[in-house]
Simulated scan of single mutants.
Amino acid sequence: MPVVEPFEDHTDRYDRWFETHEAAYESELAAVRAPLPTIEPDRAVEVGVGSGQFAAPLDVGLGVDPSPAMLRRARDRGVTPIQGVAESLPLRDDSVSTVVLVTTICFVDDVERTLAEAHRVLGPGGTLAVGFVARDGPLGERYREKQCSNPFYQDATFVAVPDLLDAMAAAGFVDWAALQTLFSDPASMDLPDPVREGWGDGSFVVVSGRVPD
Rank of each mutant, 00 (worst) to 15 (best):
L101D: 00
F7N: 01
A24S: 12
P151A: 07
L29V: 01
E8H: 11
A23R: 05
G61I: 05
L101Q: 05
D59E: 15
L91W: 01
P124Y: 09
E145G: 07
R113K: 15
Q147P: 08
G63T: 06
F158I: 05
L115S: 13
D201Q: 14
P6C: 10
D175Q: 11
D193K: 10
L101G: 12
T127M: 01
A171F: 06
P192L: 08
V79Q: 07
A56S: 14
F7S: 01
C106A: 14
P138V: 10
V49K: 04
G131C: 08
L71C: 12
Q83F: 04
G200E: 01
G123C: 05
R142D: 09
T114K: 12
E197K: 09
P162L: 03
R120F: 06
Q154R: 15
D76T: 13
V96C: 06
T114A: 15
A134F: 01
A31T: 04
D175R: 08
D201T: 09
L101S: 11
L115F: 07
Y153W: 13
V133L: 10
V4K: 06
L36F: 05
M70C: 11
I105P: 03
W17S: 09
A118Y: 02
I105T: 03
P162N: 07
L91A: 01
V96W: 05
D190P: 02
D76H: 14
I82W: 10
R72Q: 13
F18G: 04
R113Q: 15
S88D: 13
T20F: 07
A156M: 07
R113M: 10
A116D: 11
C106F: 11
V85R: 10
Q147V: 09
V100P: 01
V3P: 09
G48V: 08
V161W: 00
E40C: 10
E87N: 12
V100K: 01
D93F: 07
H10T: 10
E197L: 13
R144V: 12
S149H: 11
L71M: 11
F204C: 08
D109S: 15
